[in-house]
């Protein structure tokens, strides 16, 4: 999926003069001029009108709300300027949520995209039952996030979960309390994300791989390049745009992670006793809708946005280097 805007395309503005037929040539021309000039705006207007109401307004208004201090549940609000931001930047719980979010994101995304690449490479081979395998790896996508979280949370149960039972065979005798530590809760949540999205990303990569001309590989084979070598020097660079796209989507999804950790914490927003797996989205909801500090939640939302911009930027520059620069 190339992020190609066609920005270079010049506007060949002059419209072909319409062959006027019988009557009222000028009025017809007027309408056709109007059509050419105005209709494009008419066509894009639904998007921009809705965006103004449900996108731009909340965005701007969030800024205003973030400058207010709200009393607990129905208490009064007062203007406090940047106090929410300064307080937030010094709030260890907020930074804890940031670290958790970034940590879970890294733990989920890196193996996920790597596995997806391997999987796509395997699916790209000639094999029987191709559709079956493709549908098989996509299956997790059609479950719901909440369902995944419920099932995995039960599987990760401390005393009666399947995973601890299986670990017992590997010699892990004590029952791991998955929720109670950072490493274990992050792993559990990352596994939910990975289970759901790896197959999807593999299919996207597969699509990219199939646009690569086969001749390239044949030529490389004749030159004696191993298939691993071919993967690194042909496949990877050729699907770089696709990788950029998936990284982009995973970054936004990962930094706004919510449903999985919430269900993992039995519907609570605190992410464990010491906030081991509280993500920023949970933190925002906790501040806004559990402690009713709307201003503080709004300030956190703005910082989340900045984090996403940073994340997308960093990942973009990083992924651009994959397979050498072009």
């Amino acid at each position: 999926m190339s992020v190609n805007l066609h920005t270079e395309r010049a506007d060949p503005a002059p419209p072909p003069p319409g062959p006027g037929r019988h009557h009222s040539r000028s009025s017809r021309r007027f309408w056709s001029q109007m059509d050419l000039k105005a209709t494009p705006y008419f066509l894009i207007s639904p998007y921009f009108i809705l965006f103004a109401i449900f996108g731009l307004f909340p965005l701007v208004f969030t800024l205003w709300v973030s400058l207010q201090d709200y009393g607990l549940a129905g208490g009064d609000a007062s203007f406090t300027g940047l106090k929410n931001y300064t307080k937030l930047l010094a709030d260890a719980d907020f930074w804890n949520a940031v670290i958790n979010t970034v940590g879970i994101f890294a733990l989920a995304t890196v193996p996920q995209l790597f596995l997806a690449l391997m999987l796509a490479n395997a699916l790209n081979k000639r094999l029987r039952g191709r559709l079956f395998f493709r549908l098989g790896v996509l299956l997790p996508l059609v479950t719901s996030v909440v369902a995944v979280a419920i099932v995995f949370t039960q599987l990760y149960g401390r005393d009666f979960g399947l995973f601890n039972w299986l670990l017992g065979f590997l010699g892990v005798d004590h029952h791991i309390d998955w929720q109670s530590a950072k490493w274990s809760s992050w792993t559990a949540i990352a596994s939910m994300v990975d289970w759901r999205w790896t197959g999807y990303n593999a299919i996207i990569y597969l699509a990219g791989m199939q646009t690569i001309p086969r001749d390239l590989y044949e030529a490389a084979s004749i030159d004696g390049a191993s298939s691993r070598r071919q993967f690194w020097s042909i496949t990877l660079p050729m699907i770089r745009p696709t990788i950029i796209f998936t990284v982009f989507v995973s970054t936004i999804g990962g930094l706004t992670l919510f449903a999985e950790p919430v269900m993992f914490a039995s519907n609570r927003m605190d992410g464990g006793a010491t906030g081991q797996f509280q993500t920023i989205a949970m933190y925002i909801v906790e501040q806004g809708f559990r402690n009713f500090d709307y201003g503080y939640a709004a300030a956190a939302a703005w910082l989340l946005f900045i984090l996403i911009l940073l994340g997308v930027g960093i990942n973009y520059t990083f992924v651009r280097r994959i397979g050498g620069s072009k």
Binding site: G55, A281, A301
Partner: peptide
């Protein structure tokens, strides 16, 4: 992230 950004307003 509209849902998170705009949640309060």
């Amino acid at each position: 992230p509209l849902q998170q950004m705009g949640i309060v307003p």
